[in-house]
Design a protein around this nucleic acid. Sequence first.
DNA 1: CGGATACTTGAGCAATATCAACCGACGTGG
DNA 2: CCACGTCGGTTGATATTGCTCAAGTATCCG
Lengths: 235, 235
Amino acid sequence: MSGLDRSLIAALPPFAGAGPAQLDAVLDEARSVYRARGSSLYEQDKPADSFFVLLHGRLRVTRLTPDGRQVVVRFAGPGELVGVAVALGRDTYPATAAAAVDSVALAWPSARWPQMLGLLPALAGAALQAAGARLHDAHSRIVELSTEQVERRVANALVRLSETTGRRVEQGILIDFPISRQDVAEATGTTLHNVSRILSAWEERGWVKGGRQRIVICEPHRLMSLGEGYPANRG
Amino acid sequence: MSGLDRSLIAALPPFAGAGPAQLDAVLDEARSVYRARGSSLYEQDKPADSFFVLLHGRLRVTRLTPDGRQVVVRFAGPGELVGVAVALGRDTYPATAAAAVDSVALAWPSARWPQMLGLLPALAGAALQAAGARLHDAHSRIVELSTEQVERRVANALVRLSETTGRRVEQGILIDFPISRQDVAEATGTTLHNVSRILSAWEERGWVKGGRQRIVICEPHRLMSLGEGYPANRG
DNA sequence: CGGATACTTGAGCAATATCAACCGACGTGG
DNA sequence: CCACGTCGGTTGATATTGCTCAAGTATCCG
């Protein structure tokens, strides 16, 4: 008994349909880990000895190129499986996951993955679906990077972020974790400078409101139509 | 009994470890389909009513953007699972798969996927691994598109193609299916014109040998070092 | 208050897309 | 079997996006 409560995970997609006994058995193997903002949960190219379910917080998952450039692969939120390298047949992590805000996750030893599949027959399906969704996202980004120009990519990225992590505030929709221009640049395949210029231009039109590591989207539909290719003429 | 022989699939990764009885049961539900060069096996946004294992040939899997631009998502070869939208939790195909050469595949109704998982316990793992490998590839391409310039991307794409589909010929390694400059452009996120110019430049140096829908790589190590960032100075 | 970190902005330039024209190979039908 | 049409490819000129370099300004935190 590790002192973790079933209610922590019962409602999460990966554990859907599991009974109390299974949940307890699963939790029995789990260890809960805390990461302060900025520290990393796992690191690229290190042995993938654990996999995780994020309970609380937000992770910025990045990959580093041989020549030292960083690319944001995705942002992960509560309830998501992360670091499931084993399940995907790898023995090292393909990316680094850093806490964008103070975060809590459950961790299991990678070696336990097969047993967990036995314990939770639905887990394989859930993992496949999660992998499918990520694959679909990745392909969408490839298409975007291949065909769209920077301003449209930034617009799309912000719209997606506002959908998954947005919080309604007075002036619009706030992207609810500290995100720098650099982060946006690394997520859209451009430079800090371009993102800054683009956001400044939008802010001038009242479409967004910026701040230090802070973005509020005031006119979401403007960004959406921009992302769909309608030119950014004033209006 | 559909008249298909176990030996067709026994050696393929998705069916690894299955016994003769299982293989027969699986084949019993399968239908074999033939696609002439240029015709499509499944189409983007259509209901995903079948999934496939490619037995022979090569597929060009593409995605079309709303504004009509095409992007090559991947090339698939013999033994690969394709069109597994169901497994990934989708009910339409996310892309179009066209035969790059005359091709043969086995097809199962999507509705049979759950039963097949029951019949072949290893299939879920194989599918997860395949999805993981594709996810990894997709992320690599995102990183590439985000950070590398066109010439390097083209070099990397050709190296990868030569590794997966290359055939040793007198002058070097031939990419063993008809591939146009346009295809390469759509696979690397650039234009036909740039690819043509780049290949012409390389041909001048004797690194590749081009032809109509034909590419032979004469000096693979040159392209590899180019792809890893060493400048394309003569040598 | 001082250092560090994030952000802004401008100028110049390189990479790459676009536009335009042309060439040549393949294959099909007369 | 040849002529011609189509498709794939080449090449040049031009336009433009977006990157790099270079300061300089806010904001946060200890």
